[in-house]
Design a protein around this nucleic acid. Structure first.
Lengths: 229, 229
DNA sequence: CAGTGGTCTAGACCACCGG
DNA sequence: CGGTGGTCTAGACCACTGT
């Protein structure tokens, strides 16, 4: 009878969800559970530690382990590249460049990315289609302070997102989601009426403390982002 | 010179983000790294295992450990109770019940929650205010099959969300986010014009395979959900 | 088949913090 | 202060899977 840390996790999770151990309740110590399950303390430790990471338990030295009084609800969303997202739907992906120009970084962007006055940026506007219909409109600003080589890039066939992904693969990201009424540009790009409600993501990316890019992604009307937890 | 699993994580993470180890690159085996850092294999194992969970590494038996070719971007959002969310902003929370009535579950809800024909539900509509201004409009359906005791509850002062949280604290949830134009009811409850873009969450909750509740939460215009990763 | 990661063990020392 | 969780060790066996 093998007692793995997964068995113990399942056992404890079961007791919590079925109500045997109510929110706030104190669980037995690791040593006692190890004896009860006939395994090493390290095994119990891993089980409980992971359940704590998942938000079901609260652990404190000396105080012991308790069922979280207020369930910590945490949802995880995968943020795939647009092309992957579209192809995962079984649709044909197409990329269309609308415009690409070097400009002086506007004030709001300098504030947002902490850029110096006079900083310059590359602004790229493009659309991602799924089966020929607009799926996502992208309005991106790339800091030419951090990535001067972006000037020489040709974004006619490769999206700026894909290029950045291979140039700066691992970076720090701040992302936020909201709803906006489509402005004239977005309405044109997505083929909808002005004012229609759009799901919009905003993402700022940093690498080693330096701002890389800021992007606004407006999704086609009706888009939903879904997950379980 | 203490080498903890955190040190090793930081070390490896650094090599990945600074580009020394590029996407797809093969890392040394656990045994070699253990020797290199002068620690036990278990310590290296924990460091690498956690980095894999975080999406930076890909591990396969026999094949070894590699830097993920395509960074797995995963964002985590906390989903607090509305009251906590509002009070965390430093605002005063207020709850207002708009209506509460027992009804036959409409077809779309029966499909959504897998309810039997003729199933009955409690429909509760309410508003959550922050500093006196509407923050979130809630339109909730509670399955009376699963929770007949909801019939006798008085939701005049306690929100249905808070009651459910203490009645069924740990459940399975499916959640999705999108943008909608405010309908007449939502416009009235949130004090905005019809058609204004609203950020909307939909949540279906299950407990031991049985549907508990379905809720639509429409946030005040301009609301954004933010995180880092 | 053989090499890699996955997991368990028995024991140890330590840091934190509640009583 | 002393009990609890946090972490490390040295060793072992096993499961998967590429070659």
């Amino acid at each position: 009878m093998a007692t793995t840390f997964r068995d113990i996790k399942a056992e404890i999770r079961g007791r919590i969800t079925d109500g045997s151990w109510k929110p706030g309740a104190l669980l037995p110590g690791e040593l006692e559970l190890a004896e009860r399950y006939g395994c090493a303390r390290a095994t119990v430790n891993r089980a409980m530690r992971e359940l704590a990471e998942e938000g079901l338990l609260e652990r404190k030295r000396k105080a012991g382990t308790r069922v979280r009084a207020t369930p910590l609800r945490e949802a995880r969303f995968e943020i795939p590249a647009v092309q992957d997202e579209i192809e995962a739907l079984g649709a044909v992906y197409r990329y269309r460049l609308i415009s690409c120009a070097e400009v002086a970084a506007p004030g709001w962007l300098r504030v947002r990315l902490d850029l110096a006055e006079g900083a310059r940026a590359l602004r790229v506007v493009c659309v991602h289609d799924a089966d020929g219909a607009p799926y996502q409109a992208e309005d991106r600003w790339i800091s030419l302070t951090a990535l001067p080589e972006a000037r020489t890039m040709d974004f006619a066939n490769v999206g700026p997102g894909a290029w950045l992904l291979e140039t700066v693969p691992y970076s720090d990201v701040e992302i936020s989601f909201g709803a906006v009424g489509a402005d004239g540009t977005q309405a044109g790009l997505l083929g909808c009426a002005e004012g229609v409600a759009l799901f919009q993501a905003e993402r700022a990316t940093w690498w080693q403390g330096q701002a890389i890019t800021y992007v606004r992604l407006a999704f086609r009307p009706g888009y939903r982002m879904t997950t379980r937890y």
